[in-house]
């Protein structure tokens, strides 16, 4: 096929994305570097010296980090279990993991409001058996955010890891066992190292996803802000476009830096050759 035609086919999509994605992003980033026509970093220095913003940034990073760690710790063994199931069982468990993934994040966060709320399941149950007198306030705390985010992203890391583990040739595990390795040491010496690239990719998805998620912190976080809700607040409630632009830019930078670092790490752990 002539190259001219190929470019013609690509052109409409490319123009569309340039106009409605690349240009707006570039303009936003650009606008943060100028004030009254003067080049300046003042928008950023302002934020990075503001205790309130730093607290929000810290909470966001902590919540995202905790979410990632918990997802990995839970997801890894469960994914291994699923990957070893016979096809039928595997399909069922995968489908049950994919279903929440496709369900609206509003619905999923709302479900945790039912569970964690003052009149929610947990408080009712605990008070019912007399363990507590006053309802616990779990909802509208960073803990609630972490629970909601783990719920949001666990399926993602599960299916990513199952995909990776399924691709590990079972002969390798059998080879290790024939060489004297127990089931556990075959897991530790073969499955774990070969899953690391997939684990890193899964972790990127979870970490970046938690870092930028809006719905879950908005519903479960209460007054506690994270950067995404802070961005929204600045843009819509406070109409502070400069601040919002600077926050948006920082979110992008953090996202890309995390992706770049993790990709590098994943490449390093990839099987050689």
């Amino acid at each position: 096929m002539k190259k001219r035609y190929l470019y013609m086919l690509l052109m409409p999509g490319l123009l569309f994305l340039t106009l409605f994605m690349i240009f707006p992003l570039a303009a936003t980033v650009g606008s943060t570097l100028f004030q009254n026509g003067q080049f300046t970093f003042s928008h950023y220095t302002q934020f990075l010296t503001d205790a309130y913003f730093l607290e929000i940034l810290g909470t966001t990073l902590l919540v995202s980090f905790m979410t990632t760690i918990i997802c990995v710790a839970i997801g890894f063994p469960v994914a291994y279990y699923i990957s070893k199931l016979p096809p039928r069982g595997k399909s069922i468990l995968l489908a049950l993991a994919i279903f929440p993934l496709l369900t609206s994040s509003v619905v999923r966060s709302f479900s945790w409001m039912i569970v964690l709320g003052k009149n929610g399941l947990i408080n009712n149950a605990l008070m019912g058996i007399g363990l507590i007198q006053e309802p616990l306030s779990i909802l509208y705390t960073p803990t609630a955010m972490i629970i909601g985010l783990v719920h949001l992203f666990l399926p993602l890391i599960l299916i990513t890891l199952v995909g990776v583990m399924e691709n590990i040739n079972h002969d390798l595990v059998e080879a290790a066992q024939s060489l004297g390795a127990s089931r556990f040491s075959a897991f530790r010496k073969i499955v774990v190292p070969l899953s690391i690239p997939g684990l890193i990719i899964g972790s990127i998805l979870v970490f970046v996803g938690s870092l930028t998620a809006y719905t879950t912190p908005a519903l479960l976080g209460g007054k506690q802000r994270v950067i995404s809700t802070f961005l929204y607040q600045n843009a819509i409630t406070l109409n502070d476009w400069n601040a919002a632009s600077a926050i948006a830019t920082m979110m992008m930078i953090i996202t890309f830096v995390v992706i770049a670092i993790m990709n590098k790490a994943a490449a390093k752990f990839n099987p050689k050759g």
Partner: peptide
């Protein structure tokens, strides 16, 4: 480039679209 919209944080994309469009 064609796959990049999934990489840009949605909230950032939403904000920039509001600002410019």
């Amino acid at each position: 480039i064609f796959l990049s919209p999934v990489l840009i944080p949605g909230i950032v994309l939403g904000f920039t679209l509001l600002k410019f469009i």
